[in-house]
Computed example of a mutant assay.
Amino acid sequence: MPVTSVEKDLDALTLTIVADFAAPVQRVWDAYTDPRQIERFWGPPTYPATFTRHDVAVGGRSIYAMTGTENGDSHGGYWEWTAVDAPNSFVVNDGFLAEDGTATTGLPVTRMYFTFAPTDSGTRVTTVSSYDSLEGLEQVLAMGMEEGLRQSMAQIDDVLADLSSFAADHAAESQILSDTKVRVSRVIRGSVAQVWQAHNDADLMKQWLLGPDGWTMPVCEIATNVGDTYRYEWEQDGGEGRFGFTGELLESDAPYRAVTTESMIGMEGPGTTNEMTLTPVEGGTLLTILITYPSAEVRDMVLNTGMVGGMEASYARLESVIASDARELADA
């Protein structure tokens, strides 16, 4: 069991848990900052978590739900990121969410301080949970927080041992999170700044956002500011099979988060909402897109078109564009 000590300080209003892992600091840091990984241990085995948002940046926000494996009851939570010093420490405010997605009143908000320190055998993670009142601390202890954290951390070793699923050479993959939500993830070999720029420079986008070979992108009108609309159109070599998408930029927090709507040009009915998050990880930048569909039927129809395969082809091309630009700068 990785947990080596637990200390409750009723005077300081803190609960401190120390855990040791046989893995380097960056590997453990990535386990906490990658939504695919943290949801495999944030929550006890009987209440696994699903993260639908995970912004690893000051001012960012994470949204998760822990769902019971026996009766399916769900308990929502959120993190507000207040400090990030990668890969050494981060601080979040951890609170509860009601069914409508608003913060729950009457339950305490926990200030959680995570520190990652190298040791002779790997990494020590110290988690300090702090409260505004003794009543708040006692309330979460009565809810089983101490045992929940113990059980959660006991699952991290299995995640750390699974290197292949999260490596930079792993292709784009999709995960169905709910009837309407799908997460597509891919580590891009390049910095966050490079990947962000590649999504916000029309000349660059025309080089990589092409899907399978044989397509070009004659129209690439980028939404620069919140409220702007974008328009992308593709066609096969020779002008056949033209199609496109349009939408609005709803949120933009450069260089790590952008939220847009998306509708196919000429098609009636509701479109999707796409939330893109960029997170630095070992090997490059984790690009995560959470897609919200109007229904499960539309979700399945789109996935069955080979969408993820087309995205993988584009992302592989994106890596080539980034590498080419890096060589040009080095030669300049």
Results as ranks from 00 to 15, higher is better:
Asp11Pro: 01
Leu15Gly: 06
Ile17Lys: 09
Ile17Thr: 13
Val18Trp: 00
Val18Leu: 07
Arg27Leu: 14
Trp29Arg: 11
Trp29Glu: 10
Asp30Trp: 08
Ala31Asn: 10
Ala31Met: 10
Asp34Tyr: 04
Asp34Ser: 09
Gln37Thr: 06
Pro45Val: 12
Pro48Cys: 13
Phe51Gln: 06
Phe51Glu: 09
Thr52Ala: 04
Asp55Ser: 08
Asp55Phe: 06
Ala57Pro: 04
Gly60Lys: 01
Arg61Thr: 07
Ser62Phe: 11
Ala65Gln: 08
Met66Ile: 12
Thr67Tyr: 05
Thr69Trp: 03
Glu70His: 00
Gly72Pro: 00
Gly72Cys: 03
Asp85Tyr: 01
Asn93Trp: 05
Asp94Leu: 05
Gly95Arg: 09
Glu99Met: 03
Asp100Ile: 06
Ala103Ser: 12
Val109Ile: 14
Met112Gly: 04
Phe114Thr: 03
Thr123Asp: 06
Thr127Asn: 01
Val128Gly: 01
Ser129Phe: 00
Ser133Asp: 09
Leu134Ile: 07
Leu137Thr: 00
Glu138Asp: 15
Leu141Pro: 04
Ala154Glu: 06
Ala154Phe: 00
Gln155Arg: 13
Ile156Leu: 15
Asp162Ala: 11
Ser165Met: 07
Asp169Gln: 08
His170Met: 15
His170Phe: 13
Glu173Phe: 04
Ile176Cys: 14
Ser178His: 03
Arg183Ala: 14
Val184Thr: 07
Arg189Glu: 12
Trp196His: 02
Trp196Asp: 04
Gln197Phe: 06
Asn200Lys: 01
Asn200Tyr: 02
Trp208Phe: 03
Leu209Thr: 02
Gly211Trp: 06
Trp215Lys: 03
Pro218Ile: 00
Ile222Asp: 03
Ala223Asn: 08
Asn225Ala: 11
Trp234Ser: 02
Gly241Cys: 00
Gly241Ile: 00
Arg242Asn: 05
Phe245Ser: 11
Thr246Gly: 13
Glu251Asn: 02
Asp253Ile: 11
Ala254Tyr: 00
Val259Gln: 09
Thr260Asp: 09
Gly266Asp: 07
Pro270Tyr: 06
Thr272Phe: 05
Thr277Leu: 05
Gly284Asp: 09
Thr288Arg: 10
Ile289Thr: 15
Leu290Asn: 15
Leu290Ala: 09
Tyr293Asn: 04
Val298Gln: 15
Met301Cys: 07
Gly309Val: 07
Met311Gln: 06
Glu312Asp: 10
Ala313Val: 01
Ala313Asn: 12
Glu319Arg: 02
Ser320Thr: 11
Ile322Met: 08
Ser324Tyr: 02
Ala326Met: 05
Leu329Ile: 15
Ala330Gln: 14
Ala332Gln: 13
